[in-house]
Nucleic acid binder design. Structure first.
Lengths: 191, 191
DNA sequence: AGCGCGTGCGTACGACCGTACACTGGGGAG
DNA sequence: CTCCCCAGTGTACGGTCGTACGCACGCGCT
């Protein structure tokens, strides 16, 4: 047995119900996905990352599919939350446009983690319609948040633009500068 | 011992009685990727799809990585070709804008195959920089093709817009209409 | 105190994986 | 014709996978 550093035994000794365990498994699942992709995500690896025995996997989740679905649902919700918070903080359309620029140039580009997980989700959704509910909810929330400041058509365009610019910014070997993002948002939002 | 002028038929290494075999394996690999994803793509499955024995896999390719890299390279090149052809056929900026709309609304949306493979590639590139050369070459060619009709900045924006609109069109449960695409392209391209 | 009981875990099984490697058999050299 | 050689293949091995399932054991009830 290896000496696990983080979670040792239950704090008060003995076996106690651990309501956070299921949550920790889901979080660990997202970490594993970010690291090795859905392809490399296995019950064993997630169990190790979460510091729980392998048996817990099948106990808490029906199978790999349920685990992935819950993990991506949590991820999508968290990302939507951040997006919505950004939009809610904007007081007018100009501030909202600035926020959109910030989202593209800062939020996703910062860490490869979110980028990887997002793409893993898209890939899954592209092949398995059972995951489309997650992407749909995400896109719907984004659009609704944008509609606080823009008309529905513009919101759709902005949403798509964010998507595309984010991807290209992350994958391009010589990414576009911030000025391109500012200009693109301006072109879409001006009437 | 006259070895003159006999072995110059095939540029690389030994002679190949079945020159199409390697190609067929690569094509079959793309089919398998579209069907079960990179995660489910194995030497055995590709071999079966290509109608070749398992041993051929290790004979023709160093490993899974080389096979995937070649397969995605071929895919990216084919997609770029189609894009470039569309752009070359346009005689002026207005026709080019129409072509962009057609690409978004027809090319990718048609069959889930290309959509799935594209996302599998993005996901791979997002995590493994070893595949970035493929996505980079693809994006560079797209941009260059767009620059036949638009200035470099606009080309970058259009490229990103195509990306985002395509994804949303494919994954959204109630996709945007063609008019939204037309309008978005118009907003980006007007000066 | 004794005692089920069900939550949660350890382990084992069969399937499938990538890859190595010994071999074969058909066509060109002699 | 024979012989040899290597392109191409069949198979076996070590490993990881998902999942099933029997069992341990602390808690609540009596």
């Amino acid at each position: 047995m290896t000496t696990a550093g983080l979670e040792e035994q239950h704090p008060e000794g003995g076996r106690r119900p651990d309501p956070g365990r299921r949550d920790r498994i889901i979080d660990a699942c997202l970490d594993v996905i970010a690291e090795v992709g859905v392809a490399g995500t296995s019950h064993r690896r997630v169990a190790e990352a979460a510091g729980v025995p392998l048996g817990s996997m099948t106990y808490h989740f029906t199978g790999m599919n349920e685990l992935l679905h819950e993990a991506f649902t949590r991820f999508g919700t968290a990302e939507s939350d951040q997006f919505e918070r950004r939009m809610a903080a904007a007081t007018d359309a100009a501030a909202a446009a600035d926020a959109v620029v910030a989202i593209i140039t800062e939020d996703v580009f910062d860490t490869p983690r979110d980028l990887v997980i997002t793409h893993e989700l898209y890939t899954l959704a592209a092949r398995d319609p059972g995951f489309r509910d997650i992407t749909n909810a995400w896109m719907a929330r984004s659009r609704r948040a944008l509609e606080r400041h823009f008309d529905p058509t513009t919101a759709r365009m902005l949403d798509a633009l964010i998507e595309g610019l984010t991807i290209h910014r992350a994958l391009d070997i010589e990414p576009h500068g911030r000025d391109v993002v500012v200009d693109a948002v301006r072109r879409i939002t001006r009437r």
